[in-house]
Design a protein around this nucleic acid. Structure first.
Lengths: 224, 224
DNA sequence: GTCTATAGGCTGATAGAC
DNA sequence: GTCTATCAGCCTATAGAC
């Protein structure tokens, strides 16, 4: 009987966990759409529930508050951002490292445009949720890269440019292809952005970055 | 007696018009703050009224709906944008024209950051209000500039780059200093962005643009 | 032109039956 | 884990006294 109960309990737990995971993912996926388009204040739990095809109260069962959904979502959004941070070390060739970074960021804009828009909304609002991330992780990352750029320029591999401004511009140029997609489709006269468009973007951004840094020659893209 | 009435009427009208104008401006100024931070859906007429220091019903007296406030505001936001479009003609030196355009756009980001953020929100939402502007005016402007760039490159004044992608990147790089101001302050370790920071931004963006386009030499900034 | 009062609807969130 | 019913509060917008 003890065994029986344990089996039932276990089956029950497994069942719950898989249902929980499935619904949690449905909610986060729906929330990504709504928060990206409406911003935090404009988004409603009702819209999220509708898109997730769950009753609103069910959404509140998995996430106590709207803010909790937003926080969970922000975690999943920041993970790829942080991964793209790796690479770029002193031992790299600056041209390869920067070209690879631009390429990865453009790919991220293509693959997760909604994530990029939610991040943009968060920044426009003044980063109420990500202010710690900005002050700590990001700040520290830029300081590290500043040192690397300094060393690269001392070795004569590139000009002495401000790493902070350089990355600000790279982020802006790459993320704009996700955040301002409507505008870009209009300007390019496209119904949808295709591989060629993202390639053209990555190529021009890379050329501007490398030449702007005084880096010459061909560069293999540093895939991570 | 006819004169008297006319004088009174006239005085009355003048009084109304000046009150109307003053309050309309107060509302638009307040709305700029609220729409910039909360987006269209997140903004409330109550917040706008509070910041404008007017009763909410008074706001509805001047603008029938929240959307009307937004539309009026968008007009005032787009005016400087459209002005910055002028300049850049075939007769210009490409280096001077592009350097001047970057400079003006960075200045706009500094002077009207809220306007830039409202525009960003509008694009992120999918441009429900500005879609006509994107399809017509903006599209046409880029096509004109594409021709100019082509002629410049045929004359050997610059490389044959995509004008569309070039301007997309310039817009992104310059507007990011308004839209993502929190992030930039964090990364630069500043409490507030100062003249030097905007100058450094304009300088690096200009260098990247000019070198990316294969334009060499010094360039005077084309102020308009 | 101003402002109080209020309509009518939607919001985030919860209680409690199943 | 699901879902109906419901709460208190806020929302846009308007009516109507002044």
């Amino acid at each position: 009987m003890a065994e029986k109960r344990q089996i039932r309990k276990s089956a029950h737990r497994t069942g719950n966990r898989s249902v929980r995971m499935r619904n949690t993912l449905k909610i986060l996926s729906a929330a990504e759409k709504v928060f990206a388009e409406k911003g935090f204040d404009g988004a409603t739990t009702q819209q999220i529930a509708d898109i997730a095809k769950l009753p609103k109260s069910n959404v509140h069962y998995y996430f106590k508050t709207k803010r909790d959904i937003y926080l969970a979502l922000m975690q999943s959004i920041m993970a790829p951002w942080l991964e793209s941070f790796q690479a770029i070390s002193v031992d790299d060739d600056p041209g390869d490292a920067l070209a690879g970074y631009v390429k990865r960021k453009v790919m991220l804009s293509r693959e997760r445009p909604l994530a990029s828009r939610i991040f943009a909304n968060e920044m426009i609002r003044g980063a109420p949720v990500l202010s710690d991330f900005l002050r700590n992780e990001l700040r520290k990352w830029v300081e590290e890269k500043t040192q690397i750029v300094k060393q690269w320029s001392e070795k004569g591999k590139m000009d002495d440019v401000s790493a902070a401004h350089l990355f600000i511009i790279i982020w802006a140029a790459t993320q704009t292809y996700a955040d301002f997609e409507v505008q870009i489709k209009s300007v390019l006269g496209r119904q949808n952005l295709e591989t060629d468009d993202y390639d053209a973007a990555a190529e021009l951004i890379t050329r501007m970055v490398l030449r702007g840094c005084g880096i010459h020659g061909d560069h293999k893209v540093n895939q991570t």
